[in-house]
């Protein structure tokens, strides 16, 4: 099975594992984060809150899902930036841009390992959270969480490609990724329900695909429900995924032509 994505995945694993302390710390940090949010949730568990009502007043599960997805999204949009920055600094960016494999596919494959690790982290978050709450869930719930999870992160692959094109052209990435992370934190209901936001911010929040994905996932998990997937939300997630992938792909192509004209592809 000679596929490039396998070679990329293998390389990324070996590269990641060569930094053993970082690798181990990443795993340890999951447990620490879960305990932090578990104890924070204890603070809110004494009273009923109208904003948390739709989520069974379960702030712990609410925040773990939010943080888990946020973590995953940050990893995805950061992955392409890291690939391009590493390639610029290590000096093989030109090989990426001029190989038989297209640059967008190389970057897409480069997102697979970080996404895989991010998903593992997310699963660990959920398993630890459920263990602490002695929570049980059905196979149907797992399937729905998987579908919604994939649709929630898919648009951010496009954002990742867009970020990569920005780094390629302007040699810096900080504005885009930190802006997206801050907007998600502010508007997508990561650590508080969006119902606490004023109406005009709620309208903005509803435009962000992650808001819908996280909301759906929470409803499935906290209500252990099989009837919460709406066609509108799923369609919106699918639509934004396709749109962002197209935008990301086009911007990457444009920035490759731009740096090849200027001769700055290897610069950083």
């Amino acid at each position: 099975m000679n596929y490039f994505w396998i070679a990329q995945f293998k390389k990324d694993f070996f590269w990641d594992f060569s930094y053993k302390l970082t690798f181990l710390w990443r795993i340890a940090s999951i447990a620490i984060s879960v305990f932090i949010f578990f104890f924070i949730s204890k603070t809110f568990s004494v009273s009923n809150n109208i904003h948390l009502g739709p989520f069974n007043n379960n702030y712990f599960l609410f925040v773990i899902v939010g943080i888990g997805i946020m973590d995953l999204i940050t990893v995805i949009i950061g992955a392409t930036v890291k690939i391009v920055r590493d390639a610029q600094m290590l000096g093989f960016l030109d090989m990426f841009l001029n190989s038989r494999i297209s640059a967008s596919y190389t970057l897409f494959c480069g997102m697979l390992y970080p996404t895989f690790i991010g998903i593992l982290k997310f699963i660990c978050y959920l398993i630890l959270a459920f263990y602490l709450q002695e929570y049980e869930f059905s196979m149907v719930v797992i399937e729905k969480v998987a579908i919604v999870g994939i649709l929630t992160i898919l648009p951010f692959f496009g954002v990742g490609l867009f970020s990569a094109s920005f780094v390629l052209a302007f040699k810096q990435s900080v504005p885009i990724n930190s802006l997206i992370s801050l907007l998600l934190l502010l508007l997508s209901g990561i650590i508080y329900p969006i119902t606490v936001l004023p109406d005009y911010l709620q309208n903005l929040s509803n435009l962000i695909p992650a808001t819908h994905g996280i909301d759906l996932m929470r409803q499935i998990l906290t209500n252990n429900s099989e009837s919460t997937l709406t066609h509108e939300s799923l369609f919106y997630l699918l639509f934004t995924s396709v749109a962002s992938l197209l935008i990301g792909y086009s911007s990457l192509r444009l920035s490759i032509v731009y740096v090849k004209k200027l001769g700055t592809s290897g610069g950083y």
Binding site: N2, F4, I6, A7, Q8, K10, K11, F92, M95, F96, S99, R100, I101, T106
Partner: peptide, 8 residues
């Protein structure tokens, strides 16, 4: 191995 794969 990796760079060869990059060139198919």
């Amino acid at each position: 191995d990796y760079f060869s794969a990059l060139n198919k």
